[in-house]
């Protein structure tokens, strides 16, 4: 369970998040939708304790991220990049992360297998393609077999096979009772996997609810999105 309550954040005197409030519930895939720069990543970074809000609270299972004991056993997070230093092998990266949360070394090889990177375990992260980096990042998120997954643009950089794999993986995770929160600016992609949708624009939540409710009378989620955000859909680019 993820609870974001009236989170506001100012950066360089600009209000980038304004009273952001929403929930992501267990057993469901919650899609966090918005154009680039709308505040999706900022919200997720506050949720993960990386950045601090000016006001409001972001809780995971009722506690702020910083107060979680061995957080990887509760939350798995995938942000930009893999998080692995270029000079480190995939396995070495996963092993130090595992050690920091008291997890056994054997978890490294287990999660590498889950994401299909077993053959690249001894390869340095700096030589990974974008898609492989995303997989390594996801492997890191899965180390502690967490009940909550927080993913920022997880399909970015994945090839069609990877996208399909990620979609199935996230759906299965939710089916097993996990809370899955993922951000995306790809409306078509979100419409494929999300149960619930939260739309953010210019730092404010525009609408939230079940996918069907958010889409409403509009033909697609994309139509609904443009109607809601009054974005200039007819711009030449």
């Amino acid at each position: 369970m993820i609870t974001i309550d009236r989170v506001s954040k100012t950066k360089s005197r600009t209000l980038i998040l304004h009273d952001v409030t929403f929930e992501a519930r267990p057993g469901r895939v919650t899609g966090f939708l918005g154009p680039n720069g709308a505040g999706k990543t900022s919200t997720l970074r506050i949720l993960l304790g990386l950045d601090r809000p000016q006001s409001g609270t972001a809780l995971i299972c009722g506690r702020p991220y910083g107060k979680l004991d061995r957080p990887l056993t509760t939350v798995g997070a995938l942000l930009d990049g893999s998080g692995a230093h270029r000079a480190r092998t995939a396995r070495a990266h996963l092993r130090w992360v595992a050690a920091s949360n008291g997890l056994p070394d054997s978890r490294a090889d287990e999660v590498l297998e889950v994401v299909g990177l077993t053959g690249d375990a001894r390869k340095r992260a700096g030589r990974f393609s974008l898609g492989m980096s995303r997989r390594l990042g996801l492997a890191t998120a899965l180390l502690g077999d967490p009940e909550v997954l927080v993913l920022d643009e997880p399909v970015n950089g994945l090839d069609p096979v990877g996208i399909r794999w990620m979609r199935t993986f996230l759906r299965d995770s939710a089916a097993q009772g996990r809370t899955v929160l993922l951000s995306s600016h790809l409306m078509g992609e979100l419409a494929e996997i999300a149960d619930d949708v939260i739309v953010i624009d210019k730092g404010r939540i525009v609408i939230q609810g079940r996918l069907a409710d958010v889409t409403g009378d509009h033909h697609t989620l994309e139509d609904a999105f443009f109607a809601l955000t009054a974005a200039e859909a007819d711009r030449p680019w």
Binding site: L48, G49, D80, V97
Partner: peptide, 24 residues
């Protein structure tokens, strides 16, 4: 090493993110 960019594809990505999510 915490602050060096982890890849050309994601210039803002650093090991520190992994470090602080593991040890907040």
């Amino acid at each position: 090493s915490e602050y060096t960019s982890t890849s050309q594809n994601a210039p803002g990505a650093r090991q520190l993110t992994a470090t602080l999510t593991a040890v907040p």
